[in-house]
């Protein structure tokens, strides 16, 4: 019995493909990199009209928007109250600012002894080689807590403003992005390599916050950018397999509450002159400077979620 392979079997082997590539008979790009034609989208006019009519009917029956004077009154009251409140807040802040010392006096916060103390004793009191990280996460950790909460509040505010209802969401989601190029093969292959690299680089920046420039904010921005690249390459369906509203909620909740609890322990021991068990370590090692490393991680997670959330909200109206 002959050991020669039939033509069909030979075409399946590696040697055939290798010699074909070597001789250059078959162009490797034809048939491989063109984009498939997209599915045509048929707009559903009757469903949209029906939804509008239902919405108008509900507003009319339940709220009686045409004749309800309480509604008009509340609207006017809301507008005037909001303007008055803004003016009051502006006036209050300006008056407070005018109490600060004038430029050049000794008591002005820029010229007093605080900055000299931070620079001289920063390393030995916080244990961080990067005294900026030591300052924002050890001396002034309360301000950084406020900043992380500001990021969270900003995301929630934009979510409230841009939020769509469930029915509107399905219609708008299809119509807003249906012309975008989807499933680009080259971009997907490169993204499978690059996104882990970018995320690992972001983690490296976060972990090295206390040893050099970097920290939670910049590292979190890099991780957010990696997630945005993944979203652009693969689309919303695949990204929602691992990042949904629930993920965002739990990640932010855990990060911010961990930050609060950890810093509360520091405040408690510091205010009562107790000895805290968190070690400062040797400066220059990665596990040093007490709480700065965990707090960097918490801040980084919040920032990454915020950046991805903003992008997804402006593209889709929710996430």
């Amino acid at each position: 019995m002959s050991r020669k392979k039939t033509a069909e079997e030979y075409e399946k082997t590696f040697a055939f493909r290798f010699f074909r590539w070597l001789s250059g008979e078959k162009d490797p790009y034809i048939g491989n990199v063109e984009m498939q034609p997209q599915k045509k989208y048929e707009p559903d006019h009757e469903a949209a009209l029906r939804r509008e009519k239902e919405h108008d009917a509900i507003m009319d029956k339940v709220y009686d928007t045409g004749h309800n004077r309480w509604l008009h009154l509340f609207h006017r009251l809301y507008q005037t109250t909001s303007v008055l409140f803004c003016l009051f807040l502006i006036a209050l802040l300006l008056v407070t600012v005018s109490y600060l010392p004038a430029n050049g006096t000794v008591t002005r916060p820029v010229n007093n002894e605080v900055s000299a103390r931070y620079i001289e004793k920063g390393l030995e009191e916080t244990g961080a080689v990067n005294i900026v990280a030591g300052m924002i996460l050890d001396y002034r950790a309360f301000d950084t807590l406020g900043e992380s909460h500001v990021l969270f509040v900003a995301t929630i505010t934009v979510l409230i403003l841009l939020r769509l209802n469930k029915t509107e969401k399905d219609e708008a989601e299809v119509s807003d992005r249906r012309f975008e190029p989807k499933n680009d093969a080259i971009l997907q292959v490169v993204a499978t390599f690059l996104v882990p690299v970018i995320i690992i680089f972001g983690i490296y920046i976060i972990l090295n916050g206390h040893l050099g420039p970097g920290g939670g904010f910049s590292g979190g921005a890099v991780i957010g950018a990696g997630l945005v690249l993944y979203l652009n390459a693969f689309g919303f369906k695949k990204t929602e397999r691992f990042f949904t509203e629930k993920t965002y909620k739990w990640v932010c909740f855990f990060s911010l509450s961990f930050y609060c609890l950890a810093k509360s322990y520091s405040f408690y021991t510091g205010a009562n002159h107790l000895h805290s068990v968190i070690p400062k370590g040797t400066p220059g090692a990665i596990l040093s400077s007490g709480l700065i490393l965990p707090l960097n991680i918490a801040v980084g997670l919040v920032v990454a979620c915020t950046i991805y959330a903003f992008y997804a909200m402006f593209r889709k109206g929710g996430f």
């Binding site: 012309f179 975008e180 190029p181 971009l187 680089f201 950018a225 945005v228 690249l229």
Partner: peptide, 16 residues
């Protein structure tokens, strides 16, 4: 990273 990402995002949005 930023320059690569900006090209990808702007192209996608603009084509759409």
């Amino acid at each position: 990273m930023i320059s690569f990402l900006s090209v990808v995002v702007i192209s996608k949005v603009y084509i759409g």
